[in-house]
């Protein structure tokens, strides 16, 4: 059984364990966006990076995919890790400011500035919905298409999928989906910024960012959403995004 140290603590784990699992076992909190138990590790969000000392090599590695090997020294919150995560989260906020999950991460990490123009993407391509659909729902109805800057989550040919059973699991697991944000409920939101921007479903129902067709979220929240739409003021800048 491999034995390694994490933040100085020696831990013995079973072969095949990942660093993230080992850290969770020790109760060390590592932020993640693309990892959920029950789904295969993916390594796309890069938020779970930790510093790994392997022999003479010191590098940052995503803990959700890196195997716990014998003799490793791991640091989950070294200065290097913290700096990288903060810069990464800054980029996340700029890309997807409407996500409550991302805003929470930013505030927890003390990210106080965003130096990029806001993009308001609907998706951070964490791939959770794709894996959920394939590995838990056994449907394989959605997937990625394209690569690099043209990569996105789609249904084949952007039309209704034959294999989609409308289970809604993809919506449920999405970390940036609007459903997770309590919306107009002022107490529970970080900033109410989401009121000023269009929501994922609203904006992209036609080209179906949301893989469901018709979208459950819109059906459920139909009237209320319409209400929000009235309040939409797209011209207003998102408060935390101080533009240069």
């Amino acid at each position: 059984m491999p034995t390694l140290t994490m933040n100085g603590i020696t831990v013995e784990v079973e072969r095949g364990t990942t660093l993230l699992e080992a850290a969770q076992f020790l109760g060390l909190p590592i932020p993640t966006l693309c990892h959920e138990d029950g789904l295969a590790p993916y390594g796309g969000c890069r938020l779970c990076v930790v510093e790994v000392v392997n022999g003479a090599k010191k590098s940052l590695q995503s803990s959700c995919t890196y195997p716990a090997l014998d003799g490793l020294q791991v640091f989950t919150h070294s200065a290097r890790v913290e700096k990288a995560r903060r810069l990464l989260v800054e980029l996340y906020v700029a890309t997807c400011p409407q996500s409550k999950r991302i805003q929470d991460l930013a505030s927890a990490m003390g990210v106080r500035q965003v130096r990029y123009d806001a993009k308001h993407e609907h998706c951070i391509q964490c791939g959770l919905c794709v894996r959920m659909c394939e590995q838990q729902m056994m449907a394989g109805a959605i997937g990625f298409s394209g690569r690099g800057l043209h990569r996105e989550v789609t249904r084949p040919f952007d039309t209704t999928s034959d294999t989609c059973r409308q289970c809604g699991a993809c919506l449920y697991i999405c970390p940036v989906c609007e459903l997770r944000c309590a919306g107009p409920d002022a107490e529970s939101t970080l900033c109410n910024g989401c009121l000023n921007i269009s929501t994922a479903c609203f904006q992209t129902y036609d080209n179906a960012m949301c893989s469901l067709d018709p979208c459950h979220a819109c059906e459920i929240d139909g009237p209320f959403r319409a209400d929000v739409r009235v309040k939409l003021q797209p011209q207003i800048e998102f408060p935390v995004l101080a533009k240069k």
Partner: peptide
């Protein structure tokens, strides 16, 4: 940006 596989957000 064109040739990145696009998996890593970074």
């Amino acid at each position: 940006e064109d040739e990145s596989c696009g998996k890593c957000f970074s």
